[in-house]
């Protein structure tokens, strides 16, 4: 990082989430814990995009959810700088203290088919956060919803329609509008483009980049697709088994990976260039790595 780096927007230290392992049956005695997130630390500078990558079960989504308290972390500190300059520990706020803070940190979900309420119109979906936080009503609410829809590339007449009338890419735009209408400083994208076709994915990524410039957003971008992260993020954290194994500038991760797991992960990606051969042998290599690290 540059020496004149501004103080971080989000500073995560020792974030941990353990799930109990219980015996089956009535008594449900605890026999162990699963360390879904195990001592994760990183900083997010204002205006940057940090990619959080790894395979299913590595803890990347649990990390994202613990940050925004969608699930309760077991331990750790999550210092978040508010627009008024105050810094709060998201991990320790009570529910009542958390509510006003939530408008500054929003989430965009993977599945545009299950994250939007099918019985609500687009106007209600996008406007709901403003209503919940009592920030707008009536004509003001309508104007702000319309302006936000236009901003994400939807038309005003879309306001009265229901989610089923939209394509996957359009639904993702609705999800983005709902997150952005609160004018947050931090957006956590959890596999936000994973369900989309490549051409639509490219459009949504371009939109997210544009919005980042215009609104000064900071992204935590959770994804399993390494090519998307390479294209979108300034820095990348690679997770495995609940831990960050490597965190570096995107260029360094992709051109000079330091951790053996990062190297194996990158070699397994099928390149669209027929002259760049992928590694079919990752199974053995991962087994060897596990034997070494225990």
């Amino acid at each position: 990082m540059k020496p004149d780096t501004p103080s971080p927007l989000l500073s995560v230290r020792g974030l941990t989430k353990h799930f109990p392992v219980l015996t089956p049956g009535f008594r449900r005695r605890q026999t162990g814990v699963i360390k879904a997130v195990d001592d994760v630390s990183f900083d997010l500078a204002p205006g940057e995009s940090l990619g959080l990558v790894g395979e299913s079960g590595c803890g990347k989504t649990t990390t994202a959810r613990c940050l925004l308290r969608a699930i309760e972390p077991t331990a750790g500190v999550t210092l978040f700088r508010l627009p008024d300059g105050r810094t709060v520990d998201l991990a320790r706020l009570s529910d009542r203290e958390l509510k006003p803070v939530r408008q500054h940190a929003q989430m965009v979900f993977q599945d545009p088919f299950s994250s939007l309420n099918p019985r609500m119109t687009v106007r209600d979906i996008v406007g709901e956060p403003l209503v919940i936080h009592r920030l707008a009503q009536g004509a003001d609410l309508d104007d702000r919803v319309s302006a936000m829809l236009a901003r994400v590339g939807l038309r005003p007449e879309h306001r009265s329609r229901y989610p089923h009338a939209f394509s996957g890419g359009q639904r993702q735009r609705i999800g983005i509008a709902r997150a952005l209408i609160m004018r947050p400083s931090l957006i956590v994208c959890d596999e936000a483009t994973s369900a989309l076709d490549v051409s639509v994915q490219a459009q949504v990524l371009d939109l997210l980049k544009e919005l980042q410039r215009d609104f000064g957003l900071t992204y935590l971008f959770v994804a399993h697709n390494l090519d998307v992260v390479r294209n979108f993020c300034d820095r990348v954290a690679v997770m495995r088994k609940g831990r960050i194994v490597e965190l570096a500038a995107t260029r360094d991760i992709f051109t000079a990976p330091q951790h053996p797991y990062t190297r194996i992960l990158l070699s397994a990606v099928p390149s669209p260039d027929p002259d760049v051969k992928m590694n079919f042998n990752v199974g053995e290599e991962l087994a060897k790595l596990d034997a070494l690290t225990g």
Binding site: E55, S56, H224, L226, I264, L265, A268, V269, P270, M278, N279, F280, N281, V282, G283, L286
Partner: peptide, 14 residues
Amino acid sequence: LDVTIQAQILGLIK
């Protein structure tokens, strides 16, 4: 499938 599992399955098919 995950990318490392995908690599193994594709290798197996080949």
